[in-house]
Amino acid sequence: MVVGVPKEIKKDENRVALTPAGAAELVQAGHRVVVEQGAGAGSGMADEEYRAAGATLVPTHADVFAEADLIIKVKEPVEPEFNLFRPGQILFTYLHLAATEPVTRALLQRRVTGVAYETMQEPNGALPLLTPMSEVAGRMSVQVGAQFLEEIHGGRGVLLGGVPGVPPAEVVVLGAGTVGSNAARIALGMGAHVTIMDKRVDRLRYLEDVLTGNRITVVANQQTVDRAVRYADLVIGAVLVPGARAPRLVGEETVKGMKPGAVIVDVAVDQGGCIETVDHPTTHSDPVYVKHGVVHYAVANMPGAVPRTSTLALTNATLPYAVELARKGVRQAVAEDPVLAGGVNVIDGHVTHAAVAEAHDMEYVPLERVLAG
């Protein structure tokens, strides 16, 4: 199979979907790997390293799409890429289709098989390809939150950890999954007072056991979330429903009641956001806006700011599945691996993920029925 790795063209995205070591593994397995020139430069991975690994370097984005049977990316395709796809091509990447109807329709129209990293789920509920980037984003969320709490960046002028005689910042983490637990760990390490909120008491009980520092856990409901957010200096939105649009936990009236100069970091923005006033994603080059006196950080590709760490962490997780797709083809691979099957959001012009179909009022066709046909 020909495996293609294009350069990411989403604004401020410097990750790459395959390392030179990953390219070497695919080449050794008998596949041809086509990499766009400069694709790895943002992650500190030079063209020469890909050549040494046995990959073929091509000059343009279009060249990769023209040659490849399997396209491996980091982020969902953007409009200039839509017409580069061919029917039957496999796209393996983060798709977030429930929050991006134009991408969904483009993949359906071009009859692309879209395998989404974020909806691949193990029997125990773990999300193996979302977890590494959730870890990065959770840890980053506190770093950027601390930065924008500084007065020079429009914040309240509060030091996250305080100093002796002055209390620390109040940090509220909405969601106790991978993003939330990593955010809480970093905030506690910086000395903040952290409130972790989730509906799952068993998850809160677990974090009570494993996290140390100045923290409390609270069961999330409309009343408790409203009260905690209004008192917070920094709010981290860290909720996820795999494959579906993020639920809105914080309404506009609650944001209006927050402290002037408080900061919201909505990590869920790539699934539509969990804060009502996060009405559009931002970019690394223009990361924040102020609404109702509150600083909103809504960058949809947070790990792209630390591309080398993120690329290595991501490809550690994705490579085994990429090898599986390349060796078996998509139909055999998903028939034999239920985790990989869970990633198939669209195939042969059909939506095969129920949450995506519901988000866009489209027909849902179970993957088994498509494969049987």
Rank of each mutant, 00 (worst) to 15 (best):
M1T: 08
P6K: 02
I9M: 14
K11N: 11
D12C: 13
P20Y: 00
Q28P: 14
G30Y: 02
V35Q: 00
E36I: 09
Q37T: 13
G42D: 09
A46N: 12
R51E: 06
G54D: 01
L57A: 06
P59T: 15
H61M: 10
A66V: 02
E67D: 14
E67L: 14
A68H: 06
K73V: 00
V74I: 11
K75A: 14
E79V: 10
P80C: 01
F82L: 06
L84E: 10
F85H: 10
R86V: 04
P87E: 09
Q89K: 12
L95T: 04
T100V: 09
R105Q: 12
R110E: 06
V112H: 08
V115I: 15
A116G: 11
M120R: 05
Q121G: 02
E122S: 12
P123S: 01
V142Y: 02
V142D: 04
Q143W: 09
Q143D: 04
A146N: 03
E150A: 11
G157P: 01
V158D: 00
V158F: 04
L160Y: 00
V163H: 02
V166W: 07
P168L: 00
A169L: 05
V171T: 03
L174C: 02
V179S: 06
I186N: 11
V194M: 09
V194K: 12
V201W: 02
Y206V: 06
Y206L: 11
D209I: 10
L211Q: 12
T212Q: 07
T212I: 06
G213N: 04
R215E: 00
I216V: 15
V219N: 05
Q222W: 02
A232M: 12
A232L: 08
V235Y: 05
G237E: 09
V241I: 15
R245T: 12
R248D: 00
G261E: 01
V263K: 01
V267E: 07
Q271C: 08
G273T: 11
I275T: 11
D279C: 08
T283L: 07
D286T: 14
P287C: 12
V294E: 05
M302P: 07
V306H: 10
P307Y: 10
P307I: 08
N316F: 14
A317V: 09
T318W: 08
A322T: 13
V323A: 11
A326M: 08
G329Q: 08
Q332T: 15
A333F: 07
G342S: 07
N345T: 05
V346H: 04
I347K: 08
I347G: 03
E358W: 03
H360L: 15
H360D: 00
E363Y: 06
E363T: 15
R369H: 09
